[in-house]
């Protein structure tokens, strides 16, 4: 929502383009260290982890009358960079860190085993509110191209008169290739996008953008090849498997099938999101939204 809105604003206001996604903390660190000249291009949106953490400690805490200081916000992530991200500056919407502990998928496995949970014997249950029911758009965040597709679902809807039957699937940005380009005609304007995963590919693309060899308005970057499904915090598959099965593609497949099965597939249609905006944030890009859901970046001078 916020990211799609920021993109539309940037296009309308003639702000710095291409806009580049900021949900992958590995990528954000990379940009700060290796391509600081692109920091103005980076979306000011916090990553999903930090947004959710911020909403929990502000809106949800207030709603349930809990002191944010007494909330321990835990995230389970496919990612090790998230452990770094929770300690970043400008990530404390409620005056306390948005997220307190970030554990990887592997650590979750350890906890499940330690707790003696037998998954197959557990009854099915819903997540608690808020943000209980993720949209299909949220689910596909885990695969390269997913963030772009989610943003497109909302941006295209918005730019084409908010028609309920606006397009859902943007197949051109899917798939495990390292660098993907696509062009969409959105309400008469051409929107050119690029999707990269793996920072070596990001380096390649950004160099091309810098040299004026590539002209796009919106770029999705995921630090890990294939996106979060192949994140550094995921369950480790031995080389024996990795060498002969493309785990990126297999895991992405699972996410896309979950997406198809969802009733709600666009972020803006999610009842939870609607609720949060209606009761707390107001409009996307509002002052409150900026306070809670946006952040800032600065160049890093660590040894390369």
């Amino acid at each position: 929502m916020e990211e799609a809105n920021e993109f539309i604003d940037r296009v309308k206001n003639g702000d710095v383009l291409p806009m580049i996604t900021s949900c992958s903390p590995g990528w954000v660190r990379y940009c700060e260290a290796y391509f600081p000249e692109f920091l103005p291009n980076l979306s000011s949106c916090k990553s999903p982890q930090q947004m959710a953490g911020a909403i929990i400690k502000t809106y949800w805490a207030k709603k349930n009358n809990i002191d944010p200081k007494n909330i321990v916000s835990v995230s389970v992530m496919p990612c090790t960079a998230k452990k770094f991200e929770i300690g970043r500056e400008d990530q404390s919407a409620a005056g306390v860190p948005d997220v307190d502990i970030s554990i990887t998928t592997r650590e979750l496995v350890k906890m499940i085993n330690k707790a003696g949970l037998r998954f197959n014997d557990l009854p099915d249950e819903k997540f608690d509110s808020p943000l209980s029911e993720g949209s299909g758009a949220a689910v596909i965040f885990g695969a390269t191209g997913g963030v772009m597709e989610a943003a497109l679902r909302t941006a295209v809807w918005k730019l084409t008169g908010e028609a309920p039957d606006s397009p859902v699937e943007f197949n051109e940005v899917r798939g495990v290739e390292g660098i993907k380009f696509a062009e969409y005609n959105v309400g008469g304007t051409a929107v050119k996008v690029a999707v990269v995963s793996g920072l070596a590919n990001a380096k390649k693309l950004l160099t091309q953008v810098k040299n004026g060899e590539v002209d796009v308005q919106f770029i999705e970057v995921m630090a890990c090849p294939g996106g979060c499904v192949n994140g550094g915090g995921q369950v480790i598959q031995p080389a024996e498997v990795r060498n002969f099965v493309d785990i990126r593609a297999e895991r992405a497949k699972a996410l896309y099938s979950l997406d198809t099965a969802r009733a709600v597939r666009k972020s803006h249609e999610s009842p939870d999101i609607k609720e949060v905006y209606a009761n707390f944030l107001g409009e996307p890009g509002s002052h409150t939204a900026h306070e809670v859901l946006h952040t800032s970046y600065k160049p890093s001078s660590l040894s390369k």
């Binding site: 929990i56 998928t105 689910v139």
Partner: peptide, 17 residues
């Protein structure tokens, strides 16, 4: 004294299976 709130990223379920 603490309320623990957990969020999870979508990709987690793809390798947890």
């Amino acid at each position: 004294e603490k309320v623990v709130v957990v969020q999870t990223a979508p990709a987690v379920r793809a390798s947890l299976g």
